[in-house]
Structures are given as C-alpha cells and as structure tokens.
C-alpha cells in the first residue's frame, strides 16, 4: 500500500442556494495515495468539482476533515492554504487558462516565479518540461498561436514544473478531439509514472477511464463506486 497523500474524513459540503440548502457532498470518506492516477466520475452536480475544490484547498468542508499528508486543511488560514496550493498542487483546466501575453516558456515558468524562484535558476527546468511535452519548436509562441492540444500540453507542463505532489485536472480532455485527448492522456500517464505526482481527474470522458487506475463514481454527493484496477501501484 502506498503512502497516503490525501485523506477525506466524512466530508460534507452544503451550499445555500436562495433559501434552500444544497448538499454537494454527503459523508464522503476517501484516501488517495502518493502517485495515484485516478478520476472522479459522475454526472453534472454530482460533486466532482466540489471535491476538487476541497482537496485543492480552494474551499472548506461544512463538516468533516480534509487532510494532506496528515495536516488538516481546516486548521490553515487563507494565506496558509495559498502556500499549500502553491507548493503542492498543480492545476489543469478544461479551457487551459494560459496567460495570453506570455510565451509557452513563460507560461510554464509562471508557477516557479510564484514560488519565488529566479528565472535564471530554473531556466533549464522549464526547458526540460517544454521538451517533455514536445513543444520545443513552439517555446517562444504565444497561446493564441497554439492548437487546443498544444495549449493543454503547456498547461500540463505548467502543472508539473514545480514538481507537485498532486495534480488536479478538471475535464482536461473536454475541449479536445479524440486524437488529441488520447495523446494528452498518454502524456499524463507517462508523466505520472516518471514524476510520481498523484493525478486526480474530474471527468465525464469515457476515454479517461481507460487510462486511470482508480475510478471513484459520485452520485448526488455520495461515493457510489470506488473501483481499483490492477496496476503496478496499489491504491489504498
């Protein structure tokens, strides 16, 4: 059994919508091991994004606890949560969210700059990541000059460049065609193996499920199915 990275203990998240209460997550308990490659699957409104929010320290549970390597996120201040995200979490979005005025190189550099590293010290690291995602010939291009698949590759490199323990990927293939989706998933799979960063997808995409080693299905805010596949790494 691999070392536990994330622990969710009886997590509930209730939103107030007008005068009604909406339960987005209801008594969810999970453990995610280091180097996991898994997905949260479920229809819209099932709680996938809420779960990513809580794990990413972007929101707090109404009840229950979210622990990162044993540290309870509930006890962290807003600034401490920002530090937690900055140091440990990489994000990949459906719409890439690259910074339009910066080049491929600079977009990948961006998280390292946020971590206070000097560009001259990390230039090699950034170039290495650009090469890993196969975009060396596009390194000085701006996002507007890239295709969707290339943009998502940049987003992957940006998420990985700071060597995070966890990557949260929200519908990373939703805007891509089949071929590009396949390439992106294979790339993420390879990088997961190489860099050992745990990857959690939130997805509707059936193609994703072919690559992941664990699938957590959510329905109405509850875990309805937690399926682990045989892989080289056992899940908790």
């Amino acid at each position: 059994m691999s070392e536990t990275l994330i622990t969710l203990e009886r997590v509930c998240k209730v939103y107030q919508v007008g005068e009604e209460n909406f339960t987005a997550l209801n008594d969810v308990s999970l453990e995610v091991g280091k180097g996991a490659f898994m997905s949260f699957v479920g229809p819209s409104g099932s709680g996938k994004t809420t779960l990513l929010n809580l794990i990413g320290g972007l929101d707090r549970p109404t009840t229950g606890n979210v622990l990162f390597q044993g540290a309870n996120l509930e006890n962290m201040s807003r600034d401490q949560l920002a530090t937690y995200r900055r140091e440990n979490i990489g994000f990949i979005f459906q719409t890439y969210n690259l910074l339009p005025v910066y080049s491929v190189y600079e977009n990948i550099l961006f998280p390292l700059i946020l971590n206070g590293l000097k560009e001259s010290h990390v230039r090699k690291r950034v170039e290495e990541m650009v090469a890993k995602v196969g975009l060396m010939d596009q390194i000085n291009k701006k996002p507007a000059q890239l295709s969707g698949g290339q943009s998502q590759r940049v987003a992957i490199a940006r998420a990985l460049v700071k060597d995070p323990l966890l990557i949260l990927a929200d519908e990373p293939t939703a805007n891509l065609d089949s071929e590009n989706s396949r390439q992106i998933l294979e790339l993420m799979w390879e990088l997961n193996r190489e860099y050992k960063a745990a990857v959690i997808f939130s997805t509707h995409d059936e193609k994703v499920t072919r690559y992941i080693r664990r699938e957590v299905r959510l329905e109405d805010g509850r875990v309805s199915w937690d399926k682990r596949r045989n892989g080289t790494e056992a899940e908790p």
Partner: peptide
C-alpha cells in the same frame, strides 16, 4: 479576470 483567478488558484495570496 482569468489571470487573477489563475494566480489565486495557483497560490498567490490576495495581498
């Protein structure tokens, strides 16, 4: 708006 959101998500403190 997107850039600010991204910076907050990536862990840049508000201040």
């Amino acid at each position: 708006y997107g850039e600010m959101g991204l910076r907050l998500a990536f862990g840049e403190p508000h201040w």
